[in-house]
């Protein structure tokens, strides 16, 4: 949980770098102005860029501890693999961050760096969820889902559309695409997430583990739409001729990135809880005689 929180702070720190146009204020990597350990003068863009690097190093250290701890103490094999995957992801993420500096922010690399950051955040949230005392100790309340598409399918679809939206947003932010694909796809995300949350709340609100993330997802989606609109106004409509990043555009875009990360993680949590508490009933697989013994 602590690693997940630190990762969330790291995502905000990264968003501050991009929003303050400070991505190349430290021109070298993995050194900073030629030194590994020497603290630079923290002014201007250096404050954001080097601050991001310091938080990233801390998260990297936490992830190493998490991976070793999971490997040594966790009985579930897939959890041990997930711990190693988290470590692999954070290493790849660090290398991508370095590549953005060395190759002057190529849109494809910077966008991948942004998308992988939220993927790593979701991995840490999943580890926190599966290692939580409550999940290990609880007896899950289960209700079978007979409707189609199933709620499990809808939650996976929600994750998919959110991830596409994340990539489109990152590409726009890093000048690899225009704004309209991100804005148009926001409508698709709204429809899919509303459908998923309404289905979950209308049919399975009795299950707390499903109800809470569904309400959170719906609330975050509405907040995200407002933040996206504000970010569009401050950066695209009003701020395109700004001589420097202005506070309203920095706040709105950073908040948009942060809430986007929370929204994706919430969708992942909802999918996991639905998978556990609302499994799909495969009625078609049950032989007719067993469904209707009287007729037999």
């Amino acid at each position: 949980m602590f690693t997940a929180c630190a990762t969330f702070v790291l995502i905000i720190a990264g968003a501050l770098v991009t929003s303050n146009d400070a991505g190349l204020s430290v021109p070298d990597w993995p050194t900073t102005f030629g030194s590994i350990y020497k603290m630079p003068h923290m002014v201007g863009g250096v404050e954001w860029e080097h601050g991001h690097r310091m938080v990233a190093e801390f998260v990297g250290l936490l992830t190493i501890i998490l991976a070793i701890w999971t490997w040594r103490t966790e009985g579930r094999r897939w959890m041990r693999i997930l711990g190693v995957a988290a470590l692999g992801t954070v290493i790849a993420q660090g290398i991508l961050g370095g590549m953005t500096v060395l190759f002057y922010l190529p849109p494809a690399v910077s966008s991948t760096h942004a998308a992988l950051a939220q993927t790593f955040f979701c991995i840490t949230v999943v580890i926190a969820l599966f290692t939580g005392r409550r999940r290990i100790e609880e007896q899950p309340r289960v209700e079978f889902d007979t409707r189609r598409p199933s709620l499990v399918t809808l939650t996976w679809l929600s994750i998919f559309v959110l991830y596409v939206q994340l990539i489109l947003g990152a590409m726009f932010r890093h000048r690899g695409l225009g704004w309209w694909p991100h804005v148009v796809h926001a409508a698709v995300v709204t429809v899919v997430l509303s459908w998923t949350a309404i289905r979950a709340l209308s049919q399975y609100s009795r299950i707390e583990a499903v109800r809470k993330p569904a309400i959170t997802m719906l609330s975050l989606m509405m907040a995200q739409l407002c933040l996206g609109f504000t970010a569009f106004l401050t950066r695209v409509a009003w701020g395109h001729n700004a001589v420097q990043p202005e506070l309203p555009m920095v706040i709105s875009t950073v908040a948009h990135v942060a809430v986007g990360a929370l929204l994706l993680a919430t969708a992942v949590v909802l999918a996991i809880q639905v998978w556990r508490h609302v499994p799909v009933a495969f009625e078609e697989r049950i032989p007719t005689r067993e469904q209707n013994p009287v007729a037999a």
Partner: peptide, 28 residues
């Protein structure tokens, strides 16, 4: 076996970092 894999992963990461560091120096 597991320890070997972990060691190899760590080594790979270090080699990657060293390669990127040398790239950075060359660019400079």
């Amino acid at each position: 076996m597991n320890k070997t894999w972990l060691a190899m992963l760590g080594l790979l990461a270090l080699v990657g970092l060293a390669l990127l560091a040398s790239c950075s120096k060359k660019t400079g």
